[in-house]
């Protein structure tokens, strides 16, 4: 199997799942003829036809509301939001209906839909194209929030999201879309939703990241290991909600130290939730306060300033070292 970038991995997963299951349909703005603004759905229209690859009117609530109906009638819609910044128009449908139809009907109706959306900064885009707002979705019981970090886990997690019986918000770090390639297996594979992945075992500190931050964090981790000769355990969160706190807390019990890297604004973010879980389950094993390296609680600046506000290799390194040297 050739090496793929993340966009190609999305397309591959969609193609494989649409081939395997004819109830899977793709819909969104420009997903058909144009193949999506990031080309993530390229070639699907030609292969599966316009009944299953649907160019919708420009209305995010409409896309999600119609997907909810489709899903209740037995289809598996995979809807695309062009940018996560536009998905907020659909939050009433997600919070009001997608997340709670299972509960409302005590399992009689389910909403097995996926809402894909590119999120995050670092691509020099216009306003509303750079936010990292996973907590808006993670705080809604009934929604699953998945954030892959590389081509292989993108393909495997998107497959799992499509097969999942519940609505999954699938946030794709657009900064990583074409940043690097990775070998993916020839045969379709899935990864379990709701599980973190220990991507590197270590003994001195637990470093936790997700999405585009994984790539930056890996660079920082390599640098520190080389400079300080220490052993770092690196965890990729992958599913923001429901959070697999056991894997993180178990690692912290082993290492006694932890740094969490989050692109999103600091307050009320996933890092805060992870620290609360560590507090519940591993507090007495800590040898240093848990460090957070995060975005700031400001409106995301326009692109000429955005990199100053995002965690960089330097900021991440300093955060990790602070936890080590405490």
């Amino acid at each position: 199997m050739p090496k793929l970038n993340m966009v190609q991995a999305v397309t591959l997963a969609l193609e494989e799942q649409m081939t395997a299951d004819e109830s899977v349909v793709v819909l969104g703005e420009d997903v058909g003829v144009d193949g999506g603004v990031f080309r993530a759905t390229e070639g699907l229209l030609e292969k599966f036809g316009e009944q299953r690859v649907i160019d919708t009117p420009l209305a995010e609530s409409g896309i999600v509301g119609a997907s909810i109906g489709m899903a209740m009638a037995g289809l598996k819609p995979v809807a695309e939001m062009q940018f996560s910044g536009f998905s907020y128009l659909s939050i009433p449908q997600l919070e009001g209906h997608a997340s709670r139809m299972r509960a409302r009907s005590m399992g009689q109706f389910t909403v097995p839909m996926v809402l894909r959306m590119p999120y995050g900064g670092g691509v020099r885009a216009l306003e509303h194209h750079s936010e990292s707002r996973e907590v808006l979705y993670a705080h809604n019981p009934g929604l699953k929030v998945v954030i892959p970090s590389g081509p292989r886990n993108t393909r495997a997690l998107l497959a799992a999201a499509i097969q999942d019986p519940d609505p999954v918000i699938f946030m794709e770090p657009k900064r990583s879309y074409r940043a690097f390639k990775e070998e993916v297996p020839a045969d379709p594979e899935t990864m379990e939703i709701g599980k973190c992945q220990v991507v590197q075992e270590g003994t001195d500190i637990t470093v936790v990241a997700w999405g585009a931050m994984m790539h930056t964090t890996k660079k920082a981790v390599k640098q520190i290991e080389k400079e300080r000769g220490i052993s770092i355990e690196l965890i990729d969160v992958l599913t923001i909600s429901p959070l697999d706190s056991d894997t993180i807390c178990e690692s912290v019990r082993k290492t006694g130290r932890c740094a969490i890297i989050q692109e999103a604004a600091r307050s009320f973010g996933p890092a805060s939730e992870i620290i609360a879980c560590i507090n519940d389950k591993s507090l007495l094993y800590l040898e240093a306060p848990v460090q957070r390296v995060t975005g700031y609680d400001v409106v995301t600046p326009y692109f000429n300033r955005e990199l100053d506000y995002m965690p960089t290799v330097g900021r991440i390194s300093r955060g990790i070292i602070e936890a080590i040297d405490f």
Binding site: M70, M72, R104, S105, Q108
Partner: peptide, 30 residues
Amino acid sequence: EGNIGGNPRNLPISVIVGAQSLHAVGLAYA
């Protein structure tokens, strides 16, 4: 419990005004 049973093609009561119109469109598409 008041939402279950009945015809399996009855959607439960939708309290948020107007949101359900879109669900009908998705059902009809299916």
